[in-house]
């Protein structure tokens, strides 16, 4: 502030104003800050602390047991199975639903007719009550009365017991997961596609890219890079969270063949009330999510940046 001594009251105004602004800002953010601390920050920290304790509901006080929960996790066959199931499930759902989402988006954007209609059709699972639709899937996949196996029977094939055989249960759940996620990914890809200037595709055509495929390779795919990376990350995170279909359709069965991370965490915590152990699983889950996000930002900074 210039110390000229002239009209000092003019110099004071901004100070007063700034103080008022800061006060107002704090008042405006206060409700959010309080609820953030109580409902988000403290519980997260508490979950971390719990993971290092033997906290069980009804047993007080809990003891500090260091890394014991995590070493138990390592040796726990149930958890290892659950972890492996989650990896397989994600490995099936993510590529398929990303690929299908992109295919839907490209097919819809390729022409003018039927756009709104098909977009709505593919998007429907996103706004559908998962629990209810899981029941519909259960009927569809029912070993004896389900339409799918009835159809297979009429073709002379004996269909498996999709959801109650340990061989097919993960594949069946993954199919439902793909069905749920593809429309969501489609919408994200469509947003990404509209961000690509039409002139670029036209320039590619004039420059000699004759086939739709060569235009896709030259323009669409590279420019969709950031969108694709984002869609892949978000799909990975969404599919790691798989819970509803497992809880409704299989309860992790048969014989833990479909137990996944969040479901294991839920049963350990809320069925067996081993909160410390359950918190440790939560931290594993959190760590995976954080690593995925970190990878995304790294790749985004490095590769898909056009300056």
């Amino acid at each position: 502030m210039p110390d000229t001594g002239i009209l000092p009251h003019l110099d004071l105004a901004p100070v007063k104003r700034r103080r008022g602004e800061a006060l107002g800002a704090w008042l405006l953010t206060l409700p959010a800050v309080i609820s953030f601390v109580i409902l988000l920050l403290l519980p997260t920290l508490a979950a971390i602390v719990m993971a290092f304790s033997d906290f069980e509901l009804g047993v007080w006080p809990p003891a500090w047991i260091g890394l014991e929960n995590f070493t138990e996790l390592l040796g726990d066959r149930g958890f290892r199975q659950s972890f492996a199931n989650t990896v397989i499930y994600v490995g099936l759902v993510a590529p398929a639903s990303v690929g299908l989402g992109l295919a839907f988006a490209l097919l819809i954007e390729a022409g003018t007719r039927g756009r709104a209609f098909f977009r709505a059709v593919f998007f429907l699972p996103v706004v559908s009550l998962t629990v209810a639709m899981a029941s519909a899937w259960q009927y569809l996949l029912h070993p004896t009365i389900g339409p799918l196996n009835t159809l297979l029977r009429s073709l002379g094939v004996a269909g498996p017991a999709w959801l109650s055989s340990s061989d097919t249960v993960l594949i069946s759940l993954a199919a439902i997961g793909v069905w749920e996620n593809a429309g969501f990914n489609m919408v994200l890809f469509m947003a990404g596609l509209t961000a690509i200037p039409r002139e670029l595709r036209e320039a590619a055509a004039v420059d000699g890219a004759r086939s739709a495929w060569s235009r896709f390779r030259l323009v669409t795919w590279p420019l969709l890079g950031p969108t694709t990376l984002f869609v892949v990350t978000i799909t990975l995170i969404r599919s790691i969270r798989v819970f509803d279909t497992v809880a409704v359709l299989t309860r992790g069965g048969p014989n833990r063949a479909s137990e996944t991370l969040l479901y294991t965490m839920y049963t350990e915590g809320f069925t067996f009330l081993r909160l410390g152990y359950s918190a440790a699983i939560t931290l594993v889950f959190l760590a995976i999510v954080l690593v995925l996000m970190l990878l995304q930002t790294r790749v985004l900074d490095k590769r898909v940046h056009y300056g």
Binding site: P43, A47, T282, F285, M293
Partner: peptide
């Protein structure tokens, strides 16, 4: 700080707070 807290919150899935919230 507040913006940092927001970014932190974005990273943490809501399942993480479930256990302590249930206890509380």
């Amino acid at each position: 700080w507040i913006f940092g807290a927001v970014m932190f919150g974005l990273l943490v899935p809501p399942h993480v707070q479930a256990l302590p919230l249930y206890v509380g």
